[in-house]
Design a protein around this nucleic acid. Sequence first.
RNA 1: UGCCCGAUAGUAUAAUGGUAGUACGACAGAUUUUGGUUCUGUUUGUCGAGGUUCGAAUCCUCGUCGGGCAACCA
Length: 558
Amino acid sequence: MELTKKDEEKSLHFIEEIVENDLNSGKYQSIRTRFPPEPNGYLHIGHAKSICLNFGLAKRYGGKTNLRFDDTNPVTEETEYVESIKEDVRWLGFEWANELYASDYFEQLFAFAKDLIKKGLAYVDDNPSEEIARQKGNPTEPGIRNEFADRSVEENLRLFKEMKDGKYGDGEKVLRAKVDMASPNMHLRDPIMYRIKHAAHHRTGNNWCIYPMYDFAHGQSDSIEQITHSICTLEFIPHRPLYDWFIEKLEIFPSKQYEFARLNLTYTIMSKRKLLQLVNEKHVSAWDDPRMPTISGFRRRGYTPESIQMFADKIGVQKRENLIDFSLLEFCIREHLNRVAKRRMVVFDPLKVVITNYTEEFELVQSEENPEDPGAGHRSLFFGREIYIEREDFMENPPKKFFRLAPGQKVRLKSAYIIKCDEVIKGVDGTFEELRCSYIPESRSGSDHSGLKVQGTLHWVSVKHAVPVELRLYDRLFKVEDPSNEDGDFKDYINQESLQIISKAYAEPSLKEAGKEERFQFMRKGYFFLDKESGPGKMVFNRTVTLKDAWAKEQKKS
RNA sequence: UGCCCGAUAGUAUAAUGGUAGUACGACAGAUUUUGGUUCUGUUUGUCGAGGUUCGAAUCCUCGUCGGGCAACCA
């Protein structure tokens, strides 16, 4: 593995420190991690943090990472989600050592459970869930252990077998671990290990009607796979004593659990349940709607794996709750795209300009593909007597620091000539219909000997050669920084203006050759990415992120 | 009010008993054929009170604040 000098100097986060200690002390020769999604939804940027952590650790320290689907609840899990998860992990740039499923271990888990029964550490309880909940007590009052806990090993074994054989209906019986009904940790109050669910499972079909709970599946799966560092989020901290208890009593490989704080991002939500709601209730078009914080949403929006990895790296790994500025993610994507995106000119809201002293029909001018990357070369552009410029780039009575076009004022047309505005043609309602300008022939880009200095440079397209494209401009999905922390329903805070469609923008013709994976910067506007809804006759571009806009900021001030 | 976790600029994140630093943001300026990029500078911080120590963000005590835990979800 390759470490840059910067990496070496960078301090370790607490999990890296634990791993290094375990490696240095000889506790482990190599490490093994796992990424354990439940296939009941699409992965989001929070999962990306976990993916980068788990796979990144193994990569850095020379270990292996399994992709393990935590599929112990058949009613919420689907194959569609399995496929999307695999695609997302790969897209982020990681490859797993093994593709595994908790359901692969159902037989083994069943045997583990019988082992605990034989050790007198598990029993079948006939109580309904409400009664079990009632007997659990509450954080300040101990629970009470009922008479079913006294059943003999033989009876428990027989009953558990009957549960498996389908003799009972859903909810009639559960298998419980006999731990401590008086524990201040509620998770230790004889937790449920197995419940009856007569439901088809996405992988095991109808083979099983009893399914293990998370606590009796996750740690055991880790152990079976000899996971050395089982990394999860903070809410599982109180589960850790149980995690260790099962492993100890089962006398199996001692995987260890470590917890870190999940990612929160401003102006969005990270709950799978709430994201599902946005999809189901059509507040967004799908899981991969470019406004969604899902990995597929970011992908469709034009984010790159590199930018997301960089983001994960920058936010770090800690145990304190956090709410990260969306602007940090935007910084990461701009940083990457600035280096790789090809520059193109697209006019969003056209204002026609006629260059009165230009006598040719048209000519070709050259423009850099990417000024940050001289090796990227140049492209040719049609320049003509009639062009479109951006309507907002002209003002009849401009304020002081307006460096664009105005009557009598000069600007540079990017990669072409300097022009001067001579006349404004207005419609009956006072709107600008057309500008009459003159160009300075000696100011041709690359061979400018006009001696003129202008403050502004505009993007433009030739009217005759312009290609119509559809643009989808996205803004934050929510109007408030922390929607899930506001009063009332989080949906009350949805930003209704999060999508603005420009159905007909004018692009330079080279954009017709845009490839599916190509990244573009529409100069002075933002970064754009071809959407999957594009067809032969219609090109649709998603705005990944705007360019930083100092002028917009300046205007806001006044 | 039982148990558990946490608290460093606006937001994140370092400093592992010895000069509180970095990034993003914000602000100001320079450069610029993108009001982009790049560069320079400025601003703002150890939750509080005690204690240990020559020396505390760091160790101890007591508070305060924030988060989590009482699903046949994961």
